[in-house]
Computed example of a mutant assay.
Amino acid sequence: MKRIAVIITDMFQDVEYQQPADAFRKAGHDIVNVGISAGSVVKGEYGTHVQIDKAVRDVSADDFDALFIPGGYSPDKLRIDADAVRFAKEFFTKKKPVFAICHAAQLLITAQVLKGRRVTGWMSLVQDIKNAGAEYVDAEVVVDGNLVSSRKPADIPAFIRESLTMLQ
Rank of each mutant, 00 (worst) to 15 (best):
V142N: 06
K43V: 12
I156F: 05
A38S: 10
A105M: 13
F87S: 01
G47Y: 14
A55F: 02
P97V: 08
T110D: 03
K2P: 08
V42M: 01
A134C: 12
F87Y: 08
L107E: 02
D76R: 11
G28N: 09
E16Y: 01
T165N: 13
M1Q: 13
K96G: 07
A111G: 11
I8Q: 08
F24W: 14
A134F: 11
K26C: 02
Y136V: 10
L107M: 11
I80F: 12
K94W: 05
R117Y: 10
A154Q: 15
L114M: 11
E140D: 14
E162H: 08
L107W: 07
I7G: 03
D65K: 09
R161Y: 05
A21H: 12
P70G: 09
G44Q: 04
S40Q: 12
A38T: 10
K54Y: 06
K54E: 14
A154T: 14
Y73M: 15
I4C: 02
H29T: 08
T120R: 00
A66C: 11
P153R: 00
F87A: 03
D22E: 15
L125Y: 06
Q112H: 14
S163Q: 07
Q18V: 15
V142F: 00
I160E: 00
D65Q: 14
Q13P: 01
G71K: 08
E90A: 01
V50I: 13
V34M: 09
M123P: 14
V34E: 06
I129L: 04
R118E: 14
K89Q: 11
Q127P: 01
T93S: 12
F12P: 04
V6D: 06
V143T: 04
P97W: 12
L78R: 03
S150R: 02
D65E: 08
S37H: 12
A139Q: 06
P75A: 01
V148Y: 05
P157F: 04
K152F: 03
R118Y: 09
R86I: 10
G44L: 00
S74D: 03
P97Q: 09
I69A: 08
D138C: 04
F99H: 10
V126N: 02
A104Y: 03
D30S: 15
I129H: 02
E45S: 11
A23M: 11
F92P: 00
K2C: 11
L167Q: 02
P153V: 08
D22N: 13
G71N: 09
D14G: 13
I109G: 03
V42C: 01
G39I: 03
